[in-house]
Simulated scan of single mutants.
Amino acid sequence: MSQDLSVKEAAAEINVSAAKVRALIRTGEIAAYRPGKRSYRVTREALETYKALKHSALKLEIRASKDDQASA
């Protein structure tokens, strides 16, 4: 059974505010669904996907920074 998270729980897990998670949901960076009219739920899989993409982006950014420093 999947473990769906509230916006607050997802925010705590990725160390951002609940407002930031809602913004990430609105932009499509984190997939979520609405079980009612007011709240969002984030699946564990969606949050893990977001974390993996952010981790990959950070690694690419660090690599690019090192390449820039080496060529300077």
Results as ranks from 00 to 15, higher is better:
residue 41 R to W: 07
residue 5 L to G: 03
residue 59 K to P: 00
residue 27 T to Y: 04
residue 23 A to I: 10
residue 14 I to T: 10
residue 33 Y to M: 04
residue 27 T to N: 08
residue 68 D to T: 12
residue 1 M to Q: 04
residue 47 L to D: 00
residue 6 S to E: 04
residue 1 M to T: 06
residue 23 A to N: 11
residue 59 K to L: 11
residue 25 I to S: 00
residue 17 S to D: 01
residue 9 E to R: 11
residue 32 A to W: 00
residue 52 A to F: 13
residue 32 A to Q: 02
residue 51 K to N: 00
residue 6 S to L: 07
residue 67 D to H: 08
residue 26 R to N: 00
residue 49 T to K: 10
residue 15 N to G: 06
residue 54 K to A: 14
residue 45 E to L: 08
residue 33 Y to V: 10
residue 64 A to C: 04
residue 40 Y to I: 14
residue 72 A to C: 08
residue 52 A to L: 14
residue 45 E to N: 05
residue 11 A to G: 10
residue 66 K to V: 14
residue 60 L to D: 15
residue 51 K to M: 05
residue 50 Y to T: 10
residue 56 S to Y: 12
residue 49 T to M: 07
residue 17 S to Q: 02
residue 60 L to P: 12
residue 45 E to Q: 09
residue 37 K to W: 02
residue 1 M to G: 07
residue 27 T to M: 05
residue 63 R to F: 14
residue 66 K to Y: 07
residue 4 D to Q: 06
residue 18 A to P: 05
residue 15 N to Y: 04
residue 64 A to D: 09
residue 45 E to K: 12
residue 5 L to P: 03
residue 71 S to Q: 10
residue 69 Q to W: 03
residue 15 N to A: 12
residue 12 A to D: 05
residue 57 A to P: 12
residue 72 A to V: 11
residue 70 A to Y: 01
residue 43 T to H: 03
residue 9 E to D: 08
residue 7 V to R: 04
residue 24 L to M: 14
residue 39 S to C: 08
residue 11 A to S: 10
residue 5 L to V: 09
residue 58 L to M: 13
residue 24 L to A: 04
residue 9 E to M: 05
residue 18 A to F: 04
residue 5 L to Q: 06
residue 61 E to K: 15
residue 43 T to V: 09
residue 56 S to C: 10
residue 57 A to L: 14
residue 10 A to G: 05
residue 1 M to W: 02
residue 46 A to R: 03
residue 54 K to S: 08
residue 46 A to Q: 03
residue 5 L to M: 09
residue 41 R to P: 09
residue 38 R to M: 06
residue 40 Y to E: 07
residue 36 G to C: 13
residue 24 L to E: 02
residue 49 T to C: 06
residue 5 L to N: 04
residue 53 L to R: 15
residue 33 Y to S: 06
residue 40 Y to H: 15
residue 49 T to R: 10
residue 54 K to P: 02
residue 64 A to N: 09
residue 24 L to P: 01
residue 58 L to I: 14
residue 15 N to P: 01
residue 5 L to E: 02
residue 30 I to Y: 00
residue 23 A to V: 10
residue 27 T to H: 06
residue 70 A to S: 06
residue 9 E to I: 09
residue 66 K to W: 07
residue 55 H to C: 04
residue 32 A to H: 01
residue 36 G to F: 11
residue 18 A to E: 06
residue 16 V to H: 05
residue 58 L to E: 10
residue 65 S to M: 13
residue 11 A to I: 10
residue 61 E to Q: 15
residue 23 A to T: 12
residue 4 D to W: 02
residue 32 A to C: 06
residue 40 Y to T: 14
residue 72 A to K: 11
residue 6 S to M: 05
residue 46 A to T: 12
residue 18 A to N: 06
residue 2 S to I: 06
residue 22 R to V: 12
residue 53 L to S: 14
residue 51 K to D: 00
residue 23 A to D: 08
residue 53 L to M: 15
residue 44 R to A: 02
residue 35 P to R: 09
residue 57 A to V: 13
residue 62 I to S: 12
residue 64 A to E: 08
residue 19 A to R: 15
residue 43 T to P: 02
residue 31 A to W: 05
residue 34 R to T: 12
